[in-house]
């Protein structure tokens, strides 16, 4: 064999063996001991590193869970209860069930409802536009429509509807990781409990201005008429300035408020029209009963008064 070839092979082999030895030594010497449960927990996590749990990534979440040894504070919204159950099994601790959440879009000012008042020509980013001014429509609360939320979504669970100019959340894909909520400068997106049978009801408007000015800016703005507030039997609706807000924790999904809204701005998800209609009829009946009762009371009171009047002189 040519000596050059031989030497080459020998030298390279020698270098390889020495390097392998060095690597072996270094890996032993500087090995970092880690609780092996962390690895196991990380295995069952969705490894999206989305940060929805509040930790910087899945590994950090696993470390935090193992360190805490308690699941009441930590929850992986992407994996949901199924994953958290597995985590609990690995760690041999009690699983904590949580209601699943979903992001909802709290603006319904589509192109046709909300006329443009100027043309925005800066960088296509809601955050930059929001820092500059109140927006390219009259409404200072509404969606700016430049899709910062869609861009930030790791799960392709959002898209912009070209007809309305508003973002749409795809129910099956949304993991409630909170990224879009944090991203939106106007706070249009909000995490909402997915609800029983996936049913939800919320007010798709954030405009707190007085009804007259809000309606000038957007034809479907909440005018603060408080009809829904009056219709709610569970005190789940509150009024902030001129805006109705539904508290999802108190809401019983009775759907009675939905039809009271003049601009159909109380949005429902996965609720059949029949249910809304039935709920509405029920409400109307109840209101009728209440009205009748009131009238009867009034009559009774008047009668009593008259009687009183009649009897008074006698006394």
């Amino acid at each position: 064999m040519n000596p050059v070839v031989l030497y080459t092979i020998l030298t390279l082999t020698a270098i390889g063996i020495i390097a392998a030895g060095v690597i072996y030594f270094v890996s032993k010497k500087f090995e970092v001991k880690e609780d092996d449960r962390i690895g196991k927990v990380e295995q069952v996590l969705p490894s999206t590193n989305c940060g929805g749990c509040g930790q910087p990534g899945c590994h950090a979440f696993a470390t935090a869970v193992v360190a805490a040894g308690d699941l009441s504070e930590l929850h992986c919204p992407v994996g949901g209860n199924a994953v958290m159950k597995q985590v609990a099994e690995i760690l041999g601790i009690k699983a904590v069930e949580r209601d699943p959440y979903i992001a909802v879009v709290r603006c319904s000012g589509s192109f046709e409802h909300r006329k443009k008042t100027n043309i925005y020509d800066g960088t296509e980013s809601c955050k930059i536009a929001a820092a500059l001014y109140s927006g390219d429509t009259g409404c200072a609360y509404g969606c700016l429509g430049m899709a910062d939320c869609v861009e930030v979504c790791d799960f392709e669970a959002m898209y912009m509807d070209p007809k309305t100019g508003l973002p749409v959340v795809i129910e099956d894909k949304c993991t409630a990781c909170n990224a879009c909520v944090k991203e939106c400068p106007k706070g249009i997106l909000e995490l909402w409990p997915k609800g029983k049978k996936n049913q939800r009801v919320y007010v798709a408007c954030l405009n707190e201005e007085k009804g007259s000015s809000a309606r000038k800016e957007c034809s479907v703005a909440c005018s603060g008429c408080a009809k829904c507030f009056e219709a709610c039997r569970y005190d789940a609706i509150t009024m902030r300035n001129s805006l109705a807000i539904i508290d999802p924790d108190k809401c019983k999904l009775c759907m009675e408020c939905v039809d009271t809204c003049d601009v159909h701005n109380i949005i429902t998800a996965n609720v059949t029209p029949e249910k809304i209609q039935a709920a509405n009829e029920q409400r109307l009946k109840r209101e009728e009963r209440a009205r009748k009762k009131k009238e009867e009371e009034k009559l009774a009171a008047e009668a009593a008064k008259q009687q009183g009047n009649g009897t008074a002189p006698q006394a």
């Binding site: 800066g122 960088t123 980013s125 955050k127 930059i128 820092a131």
Partner: peptide
């Protein structure tokens, strides 16, 4: 490039 836009942000 919208340099100042992003710096302001």
């Amino acid at each position: 490039r919208p340099i100042l836009d992003y710096i302001r942000l």
